[in-house]
Nucleic acid binder design. Structure first.
Length: 392
DNA sequence: TCTGGGGTCCTAGGACCC
DNA sequence: TCTGGGGTCCTAGGACCC
């Protein structure tokens, strides 16, 4: 029997901003961009009290909470604090840490539990040390598998510690509405409610098995087992290697201006290439996606024969994908994704010249300079039309 | 004032190979 | 005559998470 803890930072972005700027303490704040199309990335509890939620459009948030303070996001700071709390756990508690997202992780704490130390003691200690050494609040769920641990951490926030043992699921889990269940999203929840499956207890109910089988695809059994407290308890360390790298941006106004789109495409592509190189990875599949004014996403991808990380080549392929598929469309958003990734060392490729370059401590600044240069170069040379000539 | 951005995983259909 | 079956990879779209 394993003891799994799910550690979830409380309103992470907003908490980091409060930590960095104590003047924001005890005021309702949200982290969001500041244009007409921005949405809330994170809201602290004072803002949530008024009904503000993550992913809510900014104009709506300021409408229901006029005194809310809008703080611009500092993503590199969030990355930094994310590393800090993960490092603390890995150094002081357990190497068995599965990084789930920027602000949460699973930890196998089985080996830390003994006659004198209960799982709750262990988690009290983790929570206290994160607060003391990093300055951020978190909530922790404890259970015998990952599903229950994650459900548990949601039950009490902020600074909560909640167990969800199998003996407790009847009282703590089954009464919850279906949309609270992990991996049941909006679509599926709606479908289930229409068929009178309204609580997690209804999913756990043996009499509903056939109905579930009909309504959900093969996943029905995972949900059924989860609701009955049965789930995966293995920490997956491989999850810590990225499977895709993407960047996208919504234009301030919908556009069909080829030049404007091209500049943005090159900028986004440059950024994902930078991350690719930083991760010391190579890519085989390049995709370009757009969102049209009807909010539909369209994705076009191209898979190469070999793994590459050459900046110009990736730019050329992205340009070709765009010009082959999306010219003359009015678009709301454009994005670039690199997927089918592999770690360089796994391909046994000898380090090349650029390795030294990228590893410089001030690589970021240098990259910024080259990025600006390359945008200009690209424009001058009209990379995208070159791409067409070169590849057709 | 109107709905972000970064991810993972799954599915279905088609191409291709044996 | 008229069309098997398994396996793998690629593509596009969509559900879901934070």
């Amino acid at each position: 029997m394993k003891y799994i803890a799910h550690i979830d930072m409380d309103c992470f972005f907003a908490s980091v901003e409060e930590l960095l700027n104590p003047k924001l303490k005890n005021k309702p704040i949200i982290v969001a961009g500041r244009n007409k199309r921005s949405v809330v990335s994170s809201a602290n509890y004072l803002a949530r009290k008024d009904g503000v939620k993550a992913a809510m459009p900014l104009f709506m948030a300021t409408k229901i909470c006029p005194k809310v303070i809008v703080v611009l996001p500092h993503f590199y700071k969030y990355e930094e604090y994310s590393e800090k709390f993960i490092n603390l756990i890995e150094k002081k508690f357990s190497k068995m840490v599965e990084h789930l997202s920027i602000d949460e992780c699973f930890v196998d704490i089985t080996n830390l539990v003994n006659k004198n130390t209960s799982p709750i003691d262990v988690c009290n200690n983790i929570q206290r040390q994160i607060k003391q050494h990093i300055g951020l609040p978190c909530s922790i769920g404890i259970a015998n598998n990952k599903f229950l641990a994650k459900m548990a951490s949601d039950l009490k926030k902020p600074m909560g510690i909640t167990t969800l043992w199998n003996s407790e699921i009847k009282n703590k889990l089954w009464p919850l509405p279906i949309h609270n269940m992990l991996w049941i999203g909006k679509r599926t929840a709606q479908l289930l409610v229409e068929n009178n499956i309204k609580t997690i207890g209804d999913i756990a109910n043996e009499n509903n098995k056939d109905l579930l089988k009909n309504l959900l695809d093969k996943n029905w059994e995972t949900h059924y087992l989860h609701a009955n407290g049965i789930g995966d308890d293995q920490i997956d360390l491989s999850i810590n290697i990225p499977k895709s790298i993407s960047q996208s941006e919504t234009f301030l106004n919908d556009t069909n201006d080829f030049n404007e789109i091209k500049i943005k495409l090159i900028e986004l592509t440059n950024n994902v290439i930078w991350t690719l190189k930083q991760q010391k990875m190579l890519v085989k599949t390049i995709s370009v996606q757009i969102k049209t004014i009807d909010f539909k996403l369209h994705n076009k991808s191209f898979t190469l024969q070999n793994y590459i990380d050459d900046k110009e080549d990736i730019l050329l392929y992205a340009g070709k994908i765009f010009s082959d598929n999306f010219t003359n469309k009015t678009i709301r958003l454009i994005g670039v994704t690199l997927s089918n990734l592999i770690e360089k060392h796994k391909l046994n490729i000898n380090s090349e010249l650029f390795d030294d370059y990228w590893n410089q401590s001030n690589a970021k600044n240098k990259e910024f300079t080259t990025l600006v240069e390359s945008i200009n170069d690209s424009l001058n040379a009209d990379l995208i039309s070159i791409a067409k000539d070169k590849l057709t």
